[in-house]
Structure formats: structure tokens, C-alpha cells
Measured scan of single mutants.
Amino acid sequence: SEEKKKAKERLERLGASSELARELLDRANGNAEKAERLLRKLL
């Protein structure tokens, strides 16, 4: 979806690899905010 694509791009801008961004979104069930929080914990 367009929303998921935007979320993935945002995670990548924050420093996630394409693969990591995809994994985070999967774990967050597509929830962009939750995926971002997970990423911030990792960085």
C-alpha cells in the first residue's frame, strides 16, 4: 500500500536498511509509528 511504502521510506531515512525497514513494519503489523519506535530503540 502507499502508506506502507511511505513508512518504509521514512524508516530508511532514519537509518534502517531496506531489509530492516521491511522487518520492522512486519513486526509492527504495518503500524508506521510502532515500527519507528522499534527502530529508535535499535539505533
Rank of each mutant, 00 (worst) to 15 (best):
R10Y: 10
S18L: 06
L42D: 01
L11H: 01
E3N: 11
L38A: 08
A35S: 02
R37N: 09
K41M: 14
R13W: 12
S1H: 11
G15D: 01
R40V: 07
E23D: 09
E12L: 13
L11C: 04
S17L: 04
E36K: 06
S18H: 07
L39W: 08
S18Q: 09
A21H: 01
G30Q: 06
A35E: 01
A28W: 05
K5G: 08
L25R: 02
D26S: 12
A35Q: 00
L39N: 00
K34E: 15
E23W: 15
A32P: 09
N29E: 10
A32E: 08
S1W: 12
S17F: 04
L14W: 05
D26L: 14
L24H: 00
R10F: 08
E33A: 14
G15T: 02
L25H: 01
K4Y: 15
R22I: 14
L24F: 03
R37S: 11
A21N: 01
K34I: 15
A28R: 01
E19F: 06
R37Q: 14
G30L: 03
L38D: 05
K34D: 14
L42G: 02
L25K: 00
L39C: 02
R22T: 13
A28G: 02
R13A: 13
R37V: 08
A35F: 04
R27N: 05
L39S: 00
L20K: 02
K5F: 09
E19L: 08
L39P: 00
E19Q: 11
E23H: 13
L43I: 07
R22S: 12
K4H: 15
A21W: 09
E19G: 07
E2I: 11
K41T: 09
L43S: 04
L42T: 05
N29W: 07
E12T: 09
L42I: 13
E23N: 08
L38N: 04
R10G: 04
L39G: 00
L38H: 04
K34A: 14
N29D: 10
N29L: 08
K4T: 13
L14T: 01
E19T: 08
N31K: 03
K8W: 15
L25V: 06
L39A: 01
A16H: 02
L20M: 08
K8Y: 15
K41A: 12
L38S: 03
R22W: 12
A32D: 04
L11F: 02
R40S: 06
N29G: 14
L14S: 02
L43K: 06
S18F: 06
L11D: 00
R27D: 04
A32K: 04
R22A: 14
S17I: 03
K5P: 06
E2K: 09
K8V: 15
L14V: 03
G15M: 03
L24M: 05
A28F: 15
E3A: 13
R13M: 12
A16G: 03
K6A: 12
L24P: 00
K4S: 13
E23M: 14
S17W: 07
K5D: 12
E19K: 11
D26R: 15
